[in-house]
Every structure is written in C-alpha cells, then in structure tokens.
Design a protein around this nucleic acid. Structure first.
Lengths: 327, 327
DNA sequence: CCCGAAATCTGGAACGTTCCAGGAATCGTT
DNA sequence: AACGATTCCTGGAACGTTCCAGATTTCGGG
C-alpha cells in the first residue's frame, strides 16, 4: 500500500530480519551469514530497493560528492580538466558535482556555498575568480584544491598548476628558433595564469635579447582582437603567442579574414593544447598542459587531506610544447 | 567546544529559543515576531550557521536538485544546452547536477542511478543513449524530460525537440536555391536525431527531384571523414550538409587539407549552430536549434509534472537557418 | 554435555532538519 | 473582567540510514 520508495525497513520486513542487518548485508560488511545475506539481497532486488544516499550521507557525515567549480563550459580546456577530474574520482566511488558559470566573484561565492550546503566532501576549483577568503571559508567545511590558479599560494588551500612561465618560455623559444624576432603576445586576461604566461613571455623575450621587440596586445574580455592585431602586424610582427587556444583561434580567424597565410605570413602559438588546437585550421602549435595528471593529482591531494594531512601542498607540473602546422 | 559545523540547535541555544522557531525564522515563514527573528538571524550569523541541505532534503522529500545527463562535454552544443537548462533552473532555486560521459548505455544507467540515489527532483537527459526502459525506471522516482532525442516518444517521458526533419529540409532548400544539385549528407550517427536529419535530407532531395543525386556519406564514430568525402567529391558533389557542426567542421578541415576553397569549391552546412559554427573558418552556415527555449521548456515541463500533470507532453520547436560564409 | 568464545543478529539512539499538534501569551471586544 | 481569537512559541515525532552496545545463537573442545 505504501507506494513510495521502498526503504531498508521494507527489505527487512520481507526478509524477516532487522533493519540493522539489512544495512550490514547490503554494504557487504562481514558478520552476516551467507544464507541470510543471500535472502536479504534477493528481498531487496524483489521490491526494487535502492539506498537513499541522502540519509546515508546525513548519518555518515560524508557524501562521496566532489564539488567542481569551473569558470565556464565554453572553453574546451575547462571541460577537459573536469573530465580528467571525474575520471580520477570515479574509481574511488566519488561523484562529481559540477557548478559552472563562476566567472564573477558573486556568483562564484553563491555556487561554492550551495555545494557546501550539500556537504560535498571536497572542492576542486578550476576558476581563478574566487577570492582567497572565500576559498578559506570553504576550506573550513571541506578540503579545497585550486587547479590552474598559479601565482600566490593561498594558506590552507592545496593547488595543482602547470608552470605557466616555463610554458610561455617554451613557446617563445620555439618561435625564436624558427627565426622570429618580432613576437607579440595576445592576452585578455588579468587572472593569475594569464599574468604568469605574460611574465614568462616577457622574461623569455628578454633572455633572447628581444626585449625591445616584445609587444603585448591587451584586449578587454569580449572585445575583438582585431584592432590590436592589426596594429601589431603593421609594426612588422611575424609571430603571435596567445594566452590560450581560444585567443590563438581568434588570431587564426583574424588572419583568415585579412587573407594572411599561417604560418607563412604569421606564426601562431596557443596555450592549453585543448581540442580547439586540433580542430583549428591550420592545426595549432600549443603548449600542452598535462590535464590527466592534474586531475589525478587534485583528487590525490584531497585524499591526503582526508587522511589527515594539514600542511599545504602546491604541485607544479611541467608543460610541453606540441608543434603543429601553425608555426 | 564542539568544533564541527554549527546546527540549528546551536543557533537556538544562542538566541534562547527553541530549534523549531529557528527553523521557522530562517526560512522566513510568518508567525515569528520581528524582534526574535532579528535575534535569531543575528545569532545564526554570529556562529556562522549554514543550513544542512542534506537534512532538509531528507525531511522534506525534495532536494531542489536537477539531474542533467549529457552524452559528453566535448560537443559545444551539449554544453550550451546544459547552460540554458541551468539558466532556466536557477530562478526557481534549483541547482543543476551534471553527469556526463553517458555515451555508453552501461555508464548511462549507472549515472542515472547515482542521481536517483541522491534523490534529484527531476532529470533532464540530453543524451539519446538511454534505453526507454531505463528512462521509465528513472521516471518512477522523479519526472524525466528528454531533450533532443527526436523520433519515438517514450511513454511516461516528456520530451523537447527541434524538428530535425524540417531543419534538414531548410539546409537542403538553401543549398538547392544556391544552385547545388549534388548535395551529400555526412553523418556518423545512428541515434534518433541523426536519423531524423538524414530522413529529412532524403525527403527534401526527393521533393526537389534530386533523389538520384542524393548521397549519404556514412562514417563510423571516431572514424575519419576523409575517405567518404573524397569519394563524394570525386563523384562531383558540390555541397555537403553535415549532421552537426562538429562533422561540418570536419568537412571544413578536410577541404582545407585538400586545398579546396569553401564555399567556392564546396559549400558546407552544419546543424546546431553551436559556438563551433561561429569559430569556423569560414563561418559556418548552420541550422539553429533554439537552445534557450529548449532549456526553459524542459524546466517548465518538470514544473508541470511536479504540479501533478500525468499526461505526456512532447514539444517540438522549429529550427531556423543561419546563413554564413560557408555557403 | 557443558562452557566460553566466536559468530550472528537486534533494538534503539543518533544525524540535522521540518512538520505537527498544541501551549502560552497577547489582544480587542463586550 | 471574562472571553475567544490571534499571535507567538515549543516539544516531540518523523525522514532513512548507520552506529553502537548488547542479546542470542552456534560451535569447538575438553
């Protein structure tokens, strides 16, 4: 008569045992005789019992939920990081809860709070739009790992990064080796990772004695890259290192519109080595971030925190350059 | 001394009232005097109280959680649908729980079960890899809406679709109007939406008396489009209508590799009008699916189910053609 | 056969919230 | 001043699970 979802008590009634034993049996704990376990499992299957994760989480004080906060889904690199996190989380029985659209601090805070209210066991933040205090507040509830924030470590928050400065150096070295001197850097970012890449670019240019040839094309978010690019081209720039693949693709689009051949008229290097790099025409040379390792490492760091580690860890992985047809 | 998360009882103790009253006050229900409400709110803020969504959900029998299952995150169209759903859900206080990677039936089932165990209040399935029985099983727990499955309605499951056959017709009509006769269709899909587009393509070709010129290039998933395309080009085909933007972009890539100018040497039309269409070189003519409306509609349908509707609804929206530089 | 130990099982108390029935204070009316 | 109607507040019982302490059964060995 009770048409609502069957509970553990219903199973117990049907199998003729106590609810406690059903709980034990279904979780596979020892101390249950094979015969009754079999009976319980069958009873559960018969009435279509499924455990209520909510109730379990409430009692056990853990949800096996991993909150992942990402700036946006429209940059393939972000979604690839999310996928790598999920791949790393799944074998541990952890489910990923994805909150996106955290490109503004306010919304970011709200999403993180929502995840916290749900008692996620850990938080992985792929957006850099979270204020340190916000992260620290969240970390009082559950361990937090920043992925890809770069620069300043935040006390109490672990982080996984690629070495943005080194990555930028790889790009510049490659272009210089190909004979370019007037290499410009296109960026729309005022975020840590963007700034680090810019700094790496400037340092590398200086190292090659090309400091005076360096030129940073700044564009506002959502602003077209065109004007800045035109000015750089006019000034004789023959190669562009873009802050990420999306902006590199913008460069390719602009070159296409202007009828400039790539790489003959203009060499282009991106950053991230996302799906975009493989789809671009021509295929984009790009600095590869070791996403898979980053995802795994992030999950590992959470495990360590759960196991009791209280000191901070800041992992920095080495990027590599993937050379394709755009240079 | 209790260093763990403060609960409603802690707030009650501090404000000198009963826990029930704290619950009432913080939820903003009437029947609480302004003075005590103020006192309670202050007490809550002072000890940093945040409500436990788990406990609430357990008691209230609703989580305000919306499960969204999507085949993959690597097709921009999917993520755009997810974003539109989230945009529609947010004003109602619903949070989106995203499960992706549901490209295989087994994993799909597992993800749906996981969401069900978490007691999501509704399920929006953007992948077509779910067997009808699986969906119906899920629908016994919470209402389910299929987005973009097309074709056969499933009893008990609402759906939101664009009219794929009509969309395909729009593409063909456009190409025919531009003077093309040998128009091929590229598809890798055996899913309902793909089949509907293919059927629409074939019907439209027939309608124009071009049935004998019709040619479907089938490719396996993860197979390169090259061989099939070459054969079609050899046969004199001058335009290609691809099953979606991703495959259209593959065509553009192939044309690029072969040095074929688009649209002069080959006209290309995609489907979805995703971000990819705007990034492509040349900009891709594509059949636009009204994503925003689809997301809203999906959420509306869930609301109606919650309000008690028991009859099925199958909404079909009209796609439009967006003409760009690839034709 | 009996005894202690091991194996198996059970009832009730949590977890943090909301819901419900009702108690206490306050108020306006006559 | 008494009355019912409001308004404001409270204690305890849910929700579905796990945990704990202990009860019961089974078993091996002398």
């Amino acid at each position: 008569m009770n048409s609502s979802r069957p509970t553990i008590v219903d199973v117990a009634a049907r199998a003729g045992v106590s609810k406690s034993l059903v709980s034990l049996a279904l979780r596979g704990d020892g101390g249950v005789s094979a015969a009754t376990r079999e009976r319980i499992v069958r009873a559960a299957a018969e009435i279509g019992y499924r455990s209520n994760a909510l109730a379990r989480a409430l009692r056990q004080h853990r949800t096996m939920l991993l909150g992942v906060v990402v700036a946006s889904l429209d940059n393939p690199y972000h979604t690839e990081v999310v996928e790598s996190v999920e791949r790393a989380a799944e074998p541990h029985g952890l489910s990923v809860l994805l909150a996106h659209g955290a490109r503004k601090a306010g919304r970011m805070a709200e999403r993180i709070d929502a995840l916290g209210d749900l008692n996620v066991d850990g938080l992985i933040v792929v957006s850099s739009w979270a204020a340190p205090e916000l992260l620290q507040a969240a970390a009082r509830r559950a361990p937090v790992v920043m992925v890809g924030r770069s620069l300043e470590p935040v006390a109490g928050i672990d982080s996984v990064n690629n070495d943005d400065e080194h990555g930028a150096a790889l790009a510049v070295d490659h272009l210089v080796a190909a004979g370019h001197e007037r290499i410009a850097h296109l960026t729309s970012s005022t975020r840590p990772a963007g700034l680090a890449r810019r700094a790496g670019y400037e340092a590398a240019m200086a190292r090659h004695g090309l400091a005076d040839r360096a030129r940073v094309i700044e564009r506002g978010r959502d602003e077209p890259a065109g004007p800045g690019l035109d000015a750089a081209l006019e000034a004789g720039c023959s190669a562009i290192f873009a802050r990420n693949d999306v902006e590199a693709d913008d460069v390719l689009n602009h070159a296409w519109d202007r009828g400039i051949a790539v790489p003959e008229g203009l060499a282009v290097v991106g950053y991230d080595d996302s799906a975009l790099a493989l789809r671009a025409r021509p295929r984009l040379t790009s600095v590869h971030q070791p996403r898979a390792e980053m995802g795994e490492l992030a999950v590992d760091l959470l495990h360590e925190r759960w196991a009791g580690r209280t000191t901070d860890r800041h992992e920095v992985l080495e990027p590599t350059l993937v050379i394709r047809a755009s240079t």
